[in-house]
Design a protein around this nucleic acid. Structure first.
Lengths: 141, 141
DNA sequence: CTTGCGCCTTAGAATCATTCCAATTTGTTG
DNA sequence: CAACAAATTGGAATGATTCTAAGGCGCAAG
């Protein structure tokens, strides 16, 4: 598995923008997230990354994920108590949590929806981000 | 602090409906949530409940909260990794998380908003609940 | 180049929230 | 009252994450 040039570049650019370095660990962690977008936990990322970097430590995986979140290349998602999950989808989207399978699906949002939702906020509330989480089941169950 | 009759009744009714008992611990835990609606953690509930029931254990607080959530008298809320918070507000509402103060505010939602939001779901997705979380700052900061 | 400095990584210890467990206690029912 | 189930309790155990201290690595200044 090798990182594609544009992603590597995007990563390097974002990192250096914050005075950070593009290390092999960070690149592989980011690439793992891009490769399989199933909202993995830090442990799952750790397992996948070890295939490429067998000596990486779990602490480093946590560090890298945190760094990617800071750079806004990745979103951290928490539904219901349990390990944080990571999502490299930067488009505006909601999450659908299937209670049967435990899987999480991205739901793309039409333009303007988030603004419309935000318009319910009273005067004086200034939202920087909006998160929408659905829970339920999908037809395939 | 004594639980008001209607709340005690609502509680007892919901509990017995599920074949459960209305114990002093459950009543006090529920009442603590109703009294100060600041989305406390289990630890915070524990501290407050101890004023009335000094010998209650933390495990019992967790048990009671879990029971109340089962009965749908209370909602468990998880933003960003960290202890679960509890909310006795049953009306449809969103949460606004103030990043300065760390406080969480309830935002009442106009009728139909949740349905409108749910309408973005593709065929085959059946949402049982929708959660909306805003993050940002409020004018008072 | 080579030295120094700050960013990174690492392993393991520490922490925090929560759950589990086994032993009472309490409430209800026959 | 006796027996059984539901609840509570304290403490141990678990799981996820964060902290800490000790090296490594890359690069800018001399």
């Amino acid at each position: 598995m090798s990182i594609s040039p544009q992603n590597a570049d995007a990563l390097a650019e974002r990192l250096s923008h914050s005075g950070l370095r593009a290390t092999p660990q960070r690149e592989v962690v980011y690439n793992v997230l891009l490769k399989k977008r199933d909202h993995p936990t830090a442990d799952e990322v750790f397992a996948r990354v070890k295939n490429e970097l067998p000596t990486i430590s779990l602490a480093t995986v946590y560090n890298c994920l945190e760094t990617l979140v800071q750079c806004e290349l990745v979103r951290a998602v928490n539904f219901e108590r349990g390990p944080t999950r990571y999502c490299p989808n930067l488009r505006p989207h909601a999450h659908f949590h299937d209670e049967h399978t435990g899987k999480t699906h991205d739901i793309d949002l039409p333009p303007g929806l988030l603004e419309k939702v935000s318009s319910v906020l009273p005067q004086g509330y200034d939202a920087k981000s909006v998160e929408i989480i659905f829970r339920g089941k999908t037809a395939s169950n």
